[in-house]
Amino acid sequence: MSNIYRVFAREVRGYVSSPSSYIFLLLFLVIGSSLMLFLNRFFAFGAAQLDGFFVYVPWLFMFFIPAIGMRLWAEEKKTGTIELLMTLPVRDIEIVLGKYIGALALVLVALLLTFPLPWMVSSLADPKTPFDWGPIYCAYLASFLLGALILAVSAWVSSMTENQIIAFILACSLTFALYLIGFPAIVSMLPEWLGNLTSKLSPYQHFSSLYQGVIEAVDVVYFVGAIGLFLYLNTRTIESRRWA
């Protein structure tokens, strides 16, 4: 556990002193809140809801999180520091988890910094139809789990290549495809059995179900399981350097 913490602390220190993490946070916050307030015409519609923000979160994540994930391993490989990491008396899974949790902390900070949005909406809500915090908490949980899944996919893709650009493009495409196969428009074009399968495989249905305000066992199991699977694959890929 202490090894995971050491790797995690090293990652976090890297993020704090790196301008790229500030740029990531800044762009995410400005684009996210502008999309809700201007593109979605929040004040014109007059509904005290945050759907206009959370509906864009998956798309923002599909672009921003691969940008964080691409450097997790690809950079270590390119600069050669991975050799140093591999020689440390730390298990591969501990390195994978430490690096992953470090990057996940950045995603969590990005989400937490959007809290002024629900605060603003709740303060402007009509007391006769009070603001409902339940779905907001669920939407944050859904966004966090989706972010964690996209990061796990990106980290795994990053572990397979040295090139950060390739890692970024591959991770974006993979998460985009995974998300898209659950879209009702796509599902309705497929035969019923295939549509059912793809909608269960895609994070779209699970994210939508969570963000409405209901935490269901199946959705939590999906996200935790999928994250676990990609972290396992990541560990195996890193491990393969030893015996390949």
């Binding site: 009070p130 409902d132 779905p135 209901v214 935490i215 199946v218 939590v220």
Partner: peptide
């Protein structure tokens, strides 16, 4: 996942 899909466990946080 199959077991969870059949389970009725859920928390409804809506007001």
């Amino acid at each position: 996942y199959y077991i969870a899909d059949r389970s009725s466990w859920r928390i409804d946080l809506t007001r």
